[in-house]
Every structure is written in structure tokens, then in C-alpha cells.
């Protein structure tokens, strides 16, 4: 299979991951689109060096989280973004109750620190502590401690 084909297939299979990470780290639609594009570009750049030593999704989460972290800190984002008219990064759930819950959820997540944002995202994705540790580089026990702190913070935010 050609490199381009293998890459596009990987991205299509996992586009939800990129969408969700973009939405957790960026508030506005325009920034989400920019970050989304940046993540795809970084994945392409690293695709040759990815030799399947880890699971494709583990590698994708790692690159996407790293890209989100550095993306937010670029003082002036001057990477020329291509206008992609066909891509509308909007997700509109049919269920208004779900929509309301999602908005509330993003508000809660965005109040967390960068490290904790990444960890909760992975937890919500159903990742086990070991997988979260492999993606983030923290030890399993550190991940467990952080998750219990995140739970605590979410409860506190709820009271406020």
C-alpha cells in the first residue's frame, strides 16, 4: 500500500480522536479547525518514523496531545492554514439534552490544567491507566493520583 493511502486510511479510521482533542483544547471553531489541521500535518510528518512499535491509536493520541500543547503556546500562529471548504468541524447532536450536557462537560474540562485535560480526555476515551501512562509519559501511580485529584476538582467545580 502506498504511503499516502496508508496514511489517509489511518486518519479516516481515527478522525474522531482528532476532532475530540481539537474541541477540548480550543474554544472557537476557527482555532479548532487550525489545530485539527496542525495535528493531521504533524501526524504526516511523523508517519515515516512510526514503525508500529506502539498501537496506531496510542501514537496518534500522543502526537495529537503534544501538538495541542505546543499549538496553544505559539505566540503568533502564522502557519498558513489551507482553506478547506468541505470540512465543517461541527458536531451537532440530534438530542438537545445531550448537546446541553456536552457543553457543560467542555466547560468543566477546560477549567482543568493542561496535564489533567489530557488525562481526562484519555480516561473518557476509555483508556486504561497503563495506556494513559504510555501516552503521557507519567507513571501508572502518578496517573492514578491525578485521576483522583481530577475527580475531586470536578466535584468542587460542581459545588461552585
Amino acid at each position: 500500500m502506498r504511503k499516502e493511502e496508508a496514511f489517509t486510511q489511518l486518519i479516516k479510521e481515527n478522525e474522531g480522536i482528532i476532532f475530540k482533542i481539537s474541541r477540548v483544547y480550543c474554544d472557537t471553531g476557527e482555532d479548532q479547525k487550525d489545530l485539527y489541521q496542525d495535528i493531521v500535518f504533524q501526524l504526516w510528518k511523523g508517519f515515516d518514523s512510526f514503525r508500529g512499535e506502539s498501537k496506531a491509536s496510542t501514537w496518534m493520541y500522543r502526537v495529537a496531545l503534544n501538538t495541542a500543547f505546543t499549538f496553544l503556546r505559539k505566540e503568533k500562529r502564522k502557519g498558513t492554514s489551507v482553506t478547506i471548504d468541505n470540512l465543517h468541524l461541527t458536531y451537532e447532536p440530534d438530542d438537545p439534552i445531550l448537546e446541553e450536557r456536552l457543553v457543560e462537560m467542555y466547560v468543566q474540562i477546560r477549567q482543568l490544567s493542561d496535564v489533567n485535560k489530557g488525562i481526562i480526555l484519555l480516561l473518557l476515551e476509555g483508556k486504561k491507566y497503563e495506556e494513559i501512562a504510555a501516552i503521557t509519559g507519567f507513571s501508572r501511580s502518578k496517573v492514578a493520583t491525578r485521576i483522583s485529584r481530577i475527580k475531586e476538582q470536578l466535584r468542587t467545580q460542581l459545588v461552585k
Binding site: 499516502e4 489517509t8 493531521v40 500535518f41 504526516w44 498558513t80 492554514s81 468541505n86
Partner: peptide
């Protein structure tokens, strides 16, 4: 495929 390739072909020059 077209959108993905378009995204990756951009000339990205970081700050």
C-alpha cells in the same frame, strides 16, 4: 482522501 492530503500538503513554516 482529498481533504486529508490537502491538509498535509500545506507549506507550514512555524514561527
Amino acid at each position: 482522501d482529498e481533504i486529508i492530503l490537502k491538509m498535509t500538503q500545506q507549506k507550514y513554516t512555524s514561527q
